[in-house]
Each structure stands twice: as structure tokens, then as C-alpha cells.
Design a protein around this nucleic acid. Structure first.
Lengths: 195, 195
DNA sequence: ACCTGAACACCGTTCAAGT
DNA sequence: ACCTGAACACCGTTCAAGT
């Protein structure tokens, strides 16, 4: 056996990520196994190691895609009138999370082994998300000093991540009747304003 | 072989949790395996199933202990003068997280399988943490309507969890020069006041 | 009643062997 | 050059067998 060449490396990578996304959406990080992804795309487990360094690298790529998809929806949500943008971002965020909670939870449950230095493209994706938000909220933050904006936006994102993570893991419902989304609006209202 | 009876069930449970805590503090959730905990306490793997329903149940018990320890430090931190309590809580929280980041991260990385209904004692522990904070911050929240206090405190905790989780996983440093702690003060200042 | 150790069904990863 | 399938060193969990 060998050298089927049915697909280019890029095609194979896309197939593997699509399969991984399906598994993650249905079962979360627990079901995300090399052997299952391989079986789903009709290749041997070893083949995945031609495409990714490790299962961790595959999951990182999947999370990168998930963040990029979220980013696209946030950009669309920020197109409305400036006054309602902060609220629109919060709604778009929770819409996204609620649509595929288990896929979203993989972002938080997965940790790189050892010192866990994340690759540059991951760092750039996150920075882009933050910078995009700072720019989109510029009208709302009109009177803020330049150096205060980024920390506030970072804190706002961390708060939303905290809420969604607690919600997805079932812990938020244990201590709050309020839906995660309304707590999100509360935080953003306080930290940024206009939410 | 059988029936060594060297230890009571409660002693065994405590030994297993201590061993699990050591492993988690050194290696995080990745290293937390039934076989390794068993080896560390000098028993066969099967013995752990006399003490816990599953590895998930053991990890849940470990996380319960971790939350209880955090709770004790927070109570101590909230003993100071009312005006500085919010800030003291934030500092105590990040002191705790920074002391054992990998142990802390287990709380967020672990998810119950399936529908994942958490046990009552876990729910009560979390509620106690929230209620304690609401009570401790009552002086700061003097003029707040009763029904607004709990949501704000829940949102505050979620924000701190989000910050600490992003910090522990190395993602916060990618988008922010500011230390997690200062972002924590920022959020609490905005959401609660007096931080 | 308690504990063991083997067994079962899985893992991630590597790599010689094939085309 | 690409892909396989077996191999290695691990998993969580169960359970007959021993004391």
C-alpha cells in the first residue's frame, strides 16, 4: 500500500479539520482522538502525522479556525450603528457560543503540554480580534485615553470568555438564574459602556 | 492478596486526593491518571474504584478541595477594612492562582462527560463562595438594590476566572502587557467599585 | 470486605515496509 | 513521496480470584 494521492496535502488538512470539528461539536474534547479523525476521513492514523505535528497541533488548528469564524461574525455584528455596537458584539458572541457549545469549549479545555508556547499565527489571530474590537468600539470609547482602551477590551473579552466557559461547563447555572448573555451585557456595560 | 486494612476508607480517600493534588500541581490535568495516583499511594488501580466512582469523580473531589482552599483564603482576605475589601479579594485570588497555576487550571480544563450534572455538594460550595462575597462586599454595595448584587458578584467572579484561565493557558500574555492581576482590579473596579 | 492483577477496549506516536 | 499497519507504551474500567 501507499501513495494513493487521492488528495493534496491541503485537501487532507481541510478534511481532517472538518472531521475534527464534527467530532468536537458532538462530543467535545473528550471524543477528539487521532484514530477517530483518521477513520472519519478514511486514512490510517499515521497519515495525520504527515499533516500535523501532533494531536495538540491539530486541536490548535481547529481552535484557530473556530476563533476565525467567531471573528467574522463579530465583524459583521459591529457593522451596525456605533451606539449599539457593544451590545451587538455581546449578542453575536453568545449566539456563536450557544450554537456550538462543545466546539467552543475545546478552546478552553485544551492546553498545550509543557511550557506550551503557542504559535505566532495563533497570537496574531487573538491580537486581531482585540484590535478589531478596539477599532469597532472607538465611537463608544470616544473620550477614553488611548492607553486605557486595550486593557479594557482585553478585560471585557476575558470576562465574556469566563462567562461562556462557566456556562458551557454547567457551573454558571448553579449560582445564577440570569442567562449568561445578560451577565455579559452587564459586564460590558460596566467595563466599556453602551452595552 | 487482599484486605490489607492498612488504612480506613477516609484515610485512603485523603491519600488519593493528596497524591492527585501533587500530580496536578506539577503536571496539570494531563498527568492526572488513575494508575499514577494508585502507584503514588501504593495500591492497585482497582482500589481507587472502591473510593471514587470514576476518575471524573476523583477530579471533581480534588476541584472541590481546591475551591474550598481558595474560599478560606478569600474569607481571610475579606477581614480587612470594608473600603479595601474588593481589592483585597482580587489580590488574594491571584495570589492563590499564581501559587499553583496548574492545579488551578484543572478546575477549568475538566468537564464532566455527557450531560455532566454536577453533584449537590459542588453546587453548594460555589453558592457559598458567591454568597460570602456578596456579604463581604455589602459595605461597598451599600446603595445597590438587593436584586442587583448577586448578578454583579457572579459576573465579577466569571471575569476573574476568565482572566486567570487565559493567563494560566498563556493566552492572556499574547494580547496584553498588563499583568492579569491589574486587569482583575480594573474589572472589579468597574463592576463592583472600590477595587 | 477489601484488594489484587489480569483482561478489555481504547489511547498517541513511531516507523519499517510497501508502492 | 506517501501511506499503511503493526508495534510500543500508555490509558480508564471491570471483575474473578484470593485472603
Amino acid at each position: 500500500m501507499a501513495r494513493r494521492n487521492d488528495h493534496t496535502p491541503d485537501e487532507l488538512r481541510a478534511m481532517a479539520l472538518a472531521a475534527a470539528r464534527e467530532i468536537a461539536a458532538a462530543e467535545g474534547l473528550r471524543g477528539l482522538a487521532v484514530r477517530r479523525v483518521a477513520e472519519k476521513i478514511g486514512y490510517a492514523p499515521g497519515t495525520l502525522y504527515n499533516l500535523f505535528d501532533s494531536l495538540d497541533a491539530l486541536i490548535l488548528a481547529l481552535n484557530g479556525e473556530t476563533l476565525a469564524r467567531l471573528g467574522m461574525e463579530l465583524v459583521r455584528a459591529a457593522e451596525g450603528n456605533p451606539a449599539g455596537r457593544a451590545a451587538a458584539l455581546v449578542d453575536a458572541y453568545f449566539d456563536f457560543v450557544e450554537r456550538q457549545p462543545l466546539l467552543w469549549s475545546v478552546i478552553f479545555e485544551h492546553r498545550m503540554p509543557g511550557e506550551g508556547d503557542l504559535p505566532a499565527w495563533y497570537s496574531e489571530g487573538l491580537s486581531g480580534l482585540i484590535d478589531g474590537t478596539v477599532a469597532a468600539l472607538a465611537p463608544v470609547l470616544g473620550d477614553w485615553p488611548e492607553e486605557d482602551r486595550r486593557p479594557a477590551v482585553v478585560a471585557m473579552w476575558a470576562a465574556l470568555h469566563g462567562l461562556s466557559m462557566l456556562a458551557v461547563s454547567g457551573k454558571l447555572a448553579l449560582v445564577s438564574d440570569a442567562p449568561p448573555r445578560s451577565l455579559g451585557h452587564l459586564v460590558v456595560n460596566r467595563v466599556i459602556g453602551g452595552g
